[in-house]
Design a protein around this nucleic acid. Structure first.
Lengths: 208, 208
DNA sequence: CCTCTTATTGGTCACGTGCTCAATTGCTTG
DNA sequence: CAAGCAATTGAGCACGTGACCAATAAGAGG
């Protein structure tokens, strides 16, 4: 029994919807298979459309990669800080933040960031987005620290510098988890808490 | 004036020599243009030979990448620790080591490590080499710390854990310098010294 | 109902990648 | 000097990539 030649059912969407769908698909692929696997054809195939259509919305892949990375990174950042709003104490907000960033199940995101650091060298749009998302994390963390300082819970000279340092440790941690899995992970994860405590003049163990 | 058809002057080398030459060329390209640019043809062209010849010595590029990265990383590690041998005090040895790792002119190496972290996901041989080189750094640093502890200069529980943490900060620093250049670099660089001092029970500023 | 915009197709092009292989040619050894 | 081994060539294959473009049809507006 041969199927009768199916008359192409073209689903025609609004430009807005289609574009969003493409970005979301790219984001999903980036998180599950790596940023390298986000390609005109992989996205098109996944969506059941033509490569040319993806090209229509994103004349250069660079733009698609940038946007896919952007939404993925921004989503994590937004979610994380949204969770914190329910917490009263600045100290506990920071503790929760670190706890989340140190979670070894964050592997997908860690991998994504490493992919982005690597690919950004030859993709200007992605490089811009990486910088933007990095700024976002540092700024919001610095804001949290400043708030805690104003409440008298933290003692830090420049909140931004401290935020920068904490994020640098998180980056090192990302490398750790992607390269060696969870081996030796605890040892390094504790470093994040320790450095935060020291930078903020807190007693050891305050943030665990 | 057209040059007369040069009768192919084939330079025929011993297998050993040629192999070493190939690896060295790959290393050079990896450091100057990134690991991605190390390809059968790029190496072959640089050497004035055929792609097939490179393939002859390295049946799979994975192996070539691994070896190129290996020699580059090992060279830095060896040189670094060789420099330290002339120094008497463990404390000064560590200070010099950190000073060197924190140097922002280390950009080529930082880039190489990031390339390697990224590519290792799909290249088993490279992944092994990355692990090996990482071990190498951690082990030798741990050895230095242990020695210092025996001399009564450092106070650390587990030297290996401390070494792991210091190297994690260096990794974070590598990301910093490759992504944002030297902006905010000093702030993060100091973190390396600070964390080392704290882990080893040294007074702040001892290592600068 | 007709028209016009544009989302969408399908096919193609040029390029770079890793890898293969038979055919050469230089060197070494008997 | 002859023979054989192995370094080296040169050409080609299969594949995946980003990009391009003319043709088509769905939907919106007059």
């Amino acid at each position: 029994m041969t199927s009768s030649p199916q008359p192409k059912v073209r689903v025609r969407r609004t430009a807005e919807n289609r574009r969003a769908e493409i970005v979301d698909c790219a984001r999903r692929i980036a998180l599950s298979q790596g940023l390298d696997h986000v390609t005109l054809r992989s996205v098109a195939d996944d969506l059941g459309v033509t490569g040319g259509l993806v090209s229509h919305y994103f004349p250069a892949v660079d733009g698609l990669l940038a946007e896919a990375f952007g939404v993925a990174a921004a989503a994590e950042c937004d979610e994380t800080f949204a969770e914190l709003e329910a917490i009263d104490s600045s100290r506990e907000r920071l503790a929760t933040l670190l706890q989340r960033l140190v979670d070894s199940t964050r592997g997908d995101l860690s991998n994504l960031w490493i992919d982005a650091w690597h690919a950004a060298k030859r993709r200007p749009a992605l490089a811009d987005e990486v910088e933007r998302q990095t700024e976002q994390w540092v700024d919001r963390l610095a804001e949290l620290l400043e708030q805690g300082r104003d409440e008298g819970q933290f003692h830090t000279g420049d909140p931004r510098t401290t935020a920068l340092r904490i994020m640098a440790v998180i980056d090192g941690l990302s490398v750790q988890v992607t390269q060696r899995g969870t081996i030796d992970y605890e040892s390094v994860a504790q470093l994040a808490f320790r450095i935060a405590e020291i930078e903020l003049g807190l007693a050891p163990g305050t943030l665990d």
